[in-house]
Simulated scan of single mutants.
Amino acid sequence: MQPIVQPFFDPVTGTVTYVVFQSGNQECAVIDPVLDYDPKAGRTSTTNADKVIEFVHRRELRVQWILETHAHADHLSAAHYLQRELGGKIAIGEHIRAVQGVFKKLFNLEPEFRLDGSQFDHLFREDEAFSFGGLTARALYAPGHTPADTAYLIGDAVFVGDTLFMPDVGTARCDFPGGNAHTLYRSIRKLLDLPGDIRLFMCHDYPPEGRKPEWETTVLAQRMHNIHVRDGVTEEQFVSMREARDATLAMPVLILPSVQVNIRAGEFPHTEENGTRYLKIPLNAL
């Protein structure tokens, strides 16, 4: 099965949202939707998400799943907004519960915030199968960037989340809470054990100077050309490179606002007595 994959690239965050469906079938999935956020004004908008909505309506599709690969640190999720407008079940890997536990402590979230993943409609188990629109799919547990990353194998396509980037960019960082470079290497090698012609779709692209954004490659291309983890790179070599590189990286601009929203499946914190919702900024904590 070769699903149709429609990408939507957000140049502000470097994120790619996907609509995935089968020709001749109206059921679809949306993967990693973006909610626009202006950190200077603390204001959200829906320009990126509305492009997805317009496409779904124009193609007369029905959203069955809104799939998150993980609790992103570089953009706010539009999952809650899209569900309100288009329906579908919001889903993520079951290990989101560990991430919720870490960040509930960091942000001192309200006591009633639950650590069981119940903010999402479905939590995928490792290798759990599911389907939509004539397509068979499987949730592939792929930790390392965070302890809760999940990739989605849908037909001949894998949506890798924050594990791999395009071959000339490499791999994701591992220095967030619960991240681990050894674990990421092993997760990536599992993905690269898939057949060479399997299509891989990135969650992000941060292109080097002179290249336009790209987000589709293959298992074979990654095995041959990925600058961090191509064939022949050992686990020890990868970990040494990744840990040294991560030590030089600044925190993502939107990590503090985005994680608070994304562990809630894209919903904002409750309105306070004055009618306003707030996101917290912990001082000297990261």
Rank of each mutant, 00 (worst) to 15 (best):
A221V: 13
D175P: 05
D197Q: 13
A265D: 01
T136F: 07
V56E: 00
Q260K: 06
V253D: 14
A151H: 02
G179Q: 04
R230W: 07
Y278D: 01
V20F: 05
I227D: 01
Y81E: 06
Y206D: 09
K51F: 03
T15D: 07
A41D: 01
Q2D: 15
L123M: 12
S77G: 05
P208I: 12
I92P: 02
R242L: 02
V229T: 09
V12F: 12
V229Q: 00
F268E: 04
Q100D: 08
V259F: 00
D193P: 06
L106M: 14
L164P: 01
E273T: 06
T218Q: 02
E209I: 09
P143L: 10
T218K: 01
G87S: 05
M241R: 11
A250H: 10
F9T: 06
A29G: 03
P39D: 08
L109Y: 08
H182P: 02
S23Q: 15
G93T: 07
F107K: 05
E54Y: 10
H72K: 05
V20N: 07
Y18W: 06
F238K: 10
F201N: 12
I66F: 04
N180L: 04
Y278A: 10
W215L: 07
P252N: 09
P207G: 11
H228P: 02
F238T: 04
V261L: 05
A181M: 12
A181S: 15
I227Y: 01
L82F: 13
F124K: 05
S258K: 00
T15E: 11
Q64I: 12
A29F: 03
Y206M: 13
R211P: 00
Y206F: 15
C174F: 07
L115S: 14
C203D: 02
S23A: 12
V56M: 03
P177W: 02
H225S: 12
L61Q: 04
H204P: 01
L220V: 00
T150M: 05
H70W: 13
I96M: 14
T234C: 10
F124M: 14
F21D: 06
V102C: 03
Y278S: 01
Y152P: 02
K104R: 11
V229R: 02
Q64F: 09
L279K: 04
V233Y: 07
V169M: 15
V259G: 01
R97S: 04
Q119V: 10
I198D: 00
T218L: 03
V34K: 07
K190Y: 08
T183P: 01
